[in-house]
Amino acid sequence: MDFIRTIATRLFYAVSLLLAVLVLNFTLIHLAPGDVADTIAQSMGGADEEILDRIRADYGLDQPFLIQLGSYMARVLRFDLGYSFFYSMPVTELILQRLPATLLLVFLAQLLALIVGVVLGVISARRPNGMLSHFVTFFALFGYSAPVFWTGILLLIAFSLKIQWFPVAGMRDVTLIGGFWAHFWDVARHLVLPVITLSSIFLALYSRLSRATMMETLGSDYVRTAKAKGLSSRSVVYKHALKNALSPVITLAGLQFSAVVSGAVLVETVFAWPGLGTLAFQSIIARDTPTILGILFFSALMVIVGNLLTDFALRAVDPRMRGRG
């Protein structure tokens, strides 16, 4: 019962956050100089006031702000994000078309960063003065300090242009003919560099944090007790200490979702990955406000869902969290 109530509170809270995001975005766009009518007029090669007024009436832009906001919210609640005049299709459809590519990239990058980061952190915590430990420290600094788009371009130059192991851009080879596995392999090959690039930032963060927490945990009393009982060092580390050292890392990973989405924008641009990031960039350049609003909405949704998942993951790992609301 308690669990259900917790979930309900969380969901209610998530939805209200999302609505607040909607209001902020809509207000922001409304405050910006120029509106959709101007953009459309520009793409037509100019228009007089009469036509501008007609476009404004078509898009409901002649209504008072609060009414526009209200009708926008009402439409969003019915999953209608409006119509993109730049792509000439409904925004929801447009975004759902691009979303899987971004989700794939973001999910795999987070997963890779978490697994490799924790493994590196744990191994180096066991030998704090070993080679690997120094490597992790150095690597963490690199990951934090290198601009992610630059890392991407460096990998691109090294592994697509100089040694031609991976494709230069995109998500699939459109000329490819073959069965499911041929396509699967094709997408996987396209994924390698973008995923490594995006995970490089977070890998650094996670390995550093898990090294620190692991070292702290390994020095704690209960670990000493476990060792005194005569358990092997391996079993102490992986069965007892790891579970406790994990929760700060998961918390941090949860806080990174908005950074992951941001990083995805840059990585997608570098690798011409057909996801939300490239769509966001194009629609911002084209001033396609319905699409911009839709993407902001969806990315906030992604972050919120990510946070919820983190929350549940934390509860699974750390029983102390379960009692909290």
Binding site: A259, V265, A280, N307
Partner: peptide, 20 residues
Amino acid sequence: TEFFQVLPTLLFSMVIVALF
């Protein structure tokens, strides 16, 4: 604060810079 943490940072500032 949590509300601002939900906003995708780069996207949001891209929009601000592009529009304003």
